[in-house]
């Protein structure tokens, strides 16, 4: 069972199914976010359905590109033998 599960995420032939599954999960999460009760919210944005989805997506994109920019342009990433 474990091997089957792991293979589903590894094998190229399941790529289409994985993509569809992801889309379905994303849609369900956003729809569910419209219907959950929001009794304890601290900030106004928490009352906007789907805000966390957008926030997560934007955060991830920002992390990838800002980090790579800093790494390449900021002189942080160096050859592996830098200290040798």
């Amino acid at each position: 069972m474990i091997a089957g599960l792991v293979n589903f995420f590894g094998e190229a032939r399941y790529a289409k199914q994985r993509w569809r599954l992801l889309q379905a999960v994303l849609v369900v999460i956003v729809i569910a976010d419209f219907f959950v009760p929001r009794a304890h919210t601290y900030y106004f944005w928490q009352t906007i359905p789907g805000w966390s989805a957008g926030f997560g997506f934007v955060s991830c994109v920002a992390i990838i590109f800002i980090s790579k920019f800093i790494g390449h342009s900021g002189g942080i990433m160096r050859d592996e033998d830098y200290y040798d």
Binding site: I29, D33, P37, H40, W51, A53, F57
Partner: peptide, 25 residues
């Protein structure tokens, strides 16, 4: 709480979406 679960899943699964879309970077 329902809101907390969907909020967390929203952040995480849309992180996954961004990962899939921008994997090559």
């Amino acid at each position: 709480s329902g809101a907390h679960v969907t909020e967390s899943l929203g952040v995480l699964m849309f992180t996954l979406l961004a990962f899939v879309l921008f994997l090559k970077y």
